[in-house]
């Protein structure tokens, strides 16, 4: 049976892998070859990750607000929270 794989491509050295889509394949090796043919026909990548979709754990969109709430109320994590006099250089 073929599995659903999600495909991630590194566009060039120095960049993160980015999700580009999915495909079906019977095993990891075929998934990689299919991903090369399907998602990198024009030098779109220098590296590919494939992972079975069933192996991905994802946050639920329904609980989006409570799940990400802890990051919303910590303004002191941002550099703009701090007042520094304008005449202090390089900061």
């Amino acid at each position: 049976m073929s599995d659903l794989y999600e495909v991630f491509v590194r566009g060039k050295r120095g960049l993160n892998h980015v999700h580009v889509g999915s495909l079906h394949a019977p095993d990891d090796e075929m998934a990689l070859r299919n991903a090369r043919d399907l998602y990198t026909r024009r030098n779109e990548g220098v590296s590919i990750w494939v992972v079975k979709a069933s192996h991905i754990a994802a946050s639920s969109p329904d609980e989006k607000d409570p799940f990400f709430a802890p990051s919303a109320d910590k303004v002191y994590r941002h550099p703009t929270f701090y007042d520094i006099p304008d005449d202090v250089p390089h900061m």
Binding site: S2, A25, P26, D27, M30
Partner: peptide
């Protein structure tokens, strides 16, 4: 082809 690939896997 699909069956052979699945059998191989």
């Amino acid at each position: 082809v699909r069956e052979a690939a699945a059998a191989h896997a």
